[in-house]
Amino acid sequence: MRLTVYLAGQIHSPWRKEFKQLAEQRKLPVDFVGPMDNHERSDDIGEEILGPQPNAILKDEAASQINNLRTRVLMNKADVVVAVFGEKYKQWNTAMDAGIAIALNKPLILVRAKELHHALKEIANHAQVVVETPEQAIEALAYIFAAE
């Protein structure tokens, strides 16, 4: 059995690469999908597909529509969603992705520091598992495959 795991969360840090390396070290039979992690391409995709937009707001709207399409399609195909909340950047995209996972009834592993407990209590209440580190999230995924 293989699982498809959607990696939701900030695109400003290398956490996805590190998470994938942890899964590879554990030899977990998982495939990863997620948002476009090339930030520049993500911001420009609306104009890449639809052509130049008349202002920055419409440029953002066009990119948002296409990025939302990607998120919805890939998350629908996912077996599990891992949403990582960091401290450094605003986490609106992570919160939105976690909300989509909840709405789609996808199993959700929420990764957040203890200090973010209050801010994320509603999302945590809907997650199947809440952990503090990516390593703990990998252990939760590994348990799915445990024979004993």
Rank of each mutant, 00 (worst) to 15 (best):
N38T: 04
L74Y: 12
A98R: 04
E139K: 15
N76H: 13
I11F: 06
L108H: 01
L69R: 13
I100T: 08
V80N: 01
Q10V: 15
A137R: 00
L141S: 02
H39T: 12
K114C: 07
E47R: 09
V33L: 06
D37E: 12
A101Q: 06
N76Y: 07
K20G: 10
V73L: 11
N93A: 15
F85W: 04
A127G: 02
P29N: 05
I123M: 08
K77H: 11
K121P: 00
A113N: 10
A137P: 01
D43R: 13
R41V: 15
V82S: 00
P107R: 12
K90C: 07
I109W: 00
Q21T: 09
L28T: 01
L120E: 04
E47H: 02
V129I: 15
A101C: 08
P29A: 08
A113V: 06
A140L: 04
Y89L: 06
M96S: 09
T94G: 03
E24N: 11
S64H: 12
F32E: 02
R72T: 14
E87D: 12
Q128N: 11
P14Y: 04
Q136G: 03
E24C: 07
I138P: 06
H118I: 08
E24T: 14
L58Q: 14
N68K: 12
L3I: 00
L141Q: 02
M96Y: 15
T4L: 06
N76K: 12
W92I: 12
K90A: 14
S42K: 10
T133K: 04
D60R: 15
K77M: 08
A98M: 08
T94V: 03
F85S: 05
V30F: 00
V130L: 07
N68I: 10
A124D: 05
G46D: 00
E61W: 10
F19V: 03
R72H: 15
E61T: 10
P52Q: 13
G34P: 06
A140T: 02
A146N: 11
E148I: 03
E40L: 14
G86T: 11
D60E: 15
G46S: 02
V81F: 00
V30G: 01
F145L: 07
G99P: 08
